[in-house]
Design a protein around this nucleic acid. Sequence first.
DNA 1: CACTCGTGGGT
DNA 2: TACCCAAGAGT
Length: 375
Amino acid sequence: MEKWSPATIREFRRTLLAWYDQEGRDLPWRHDHDPYHVWVSEIMLQQTQVQTVIPYYQCFMAAFPTVTALANAAEADLLKAWQGLGYYSRARNLQRAARQLVTDYHGQWPTTAATLQDLVGVGPYTACAIASIAFNEVVPAIDGNAFRVFARLLLIDADVAQPKTRQVFFDILQPIVDSQRPGDFNQAVMDLGSSYMTAKTPDPAHSPVRAFDASYRTDQVLAYPVKTKKPRPKLVPYYGLLVTSPAGDLLVQRSAQQMLAGYWTYPLIPKADLLPAEATTTPTLAADIAALEARWQRDYQLSVRFTPLGGRTVSQTYTHQRWQVSLLQAKLPTATPLTYFPGQWVATTQVADLPVPKVQEKMMRRWAQARAAVQ
DNA sequence: CACTCGTGGGT
DNA sequence: TACCCAAGAGT
């Protein structure tokens, strides 16, 4: 591992900030240092690329321009604003924290990384980012970019997939952060990490800090950062139920305990839930449909006949699961009341107003194709 | 600490 | 294709 002298550290800061002043990106949340703007952008940017965030950030600020507006927002509006951005608990936590700020803090922001972490959804990275950018606290904001950039510059061998490695980087970076411009220093590292020092296709030869890059000097750029691999997502088969009546399409809102909480989908039934685990026969489509119809009759007093929808399944890959959804179709001749079924009839024209996840959009497209083919 | 939680883009 | 990756945090 490399060790920089105080003189090298000074020269590195000067080089990095000079480049940032010339080449730093003009992003919507960099127009000022308002902590609300910094905070919302940092939450959106968690595990999400800048290009994806920009339009969401602009719409979000137009809809919820202040902490108070966010605290008072209707949940449906919030989920709709976050639709498609992923990691939806971020939206809920954002509003919970806005309410914390209004009620517990009386609109007065905590100004240190240590106290910012008391806001739900604000962890070690985001707290340091807000503290340095909005309040000039001299702390390193250690995210994936910082891991990648400094692992290469300094040949740091610690496994960045391990939680304890954050402290290793923090201790190394604390004396390197520019004490006059900590926020700009941290943002410059992020710009570096998303341009010359990307994960797969870096361009270290033209990096503004190539003279400080030990991995480039020793021709082992792609060997850093050291990161252990994660297991591949597990296949989870589902039935997706396309049920119509004169009242509209049948949709359910996902519970607070489920993934995609609060978002609406067609009823999704894990195939594993249909037949008892001790069943000896291999589940067939016909047996699954029979079990499904019997359950709807017994639990919901709904007489429904399902038929398979032709074509491929709908797939959606998440970090730890790969959903493979086989679509079944059913048509009820009358607007049957859903006395026991935990869902709603939604008129086709109103589906667009509901917050829906990507897998629901895919199911809707597949169904629209099937209906168009019949015509 | 290990696991969970979305989506889009790149190779 | 099937991976890997991207401004992480909560449990």
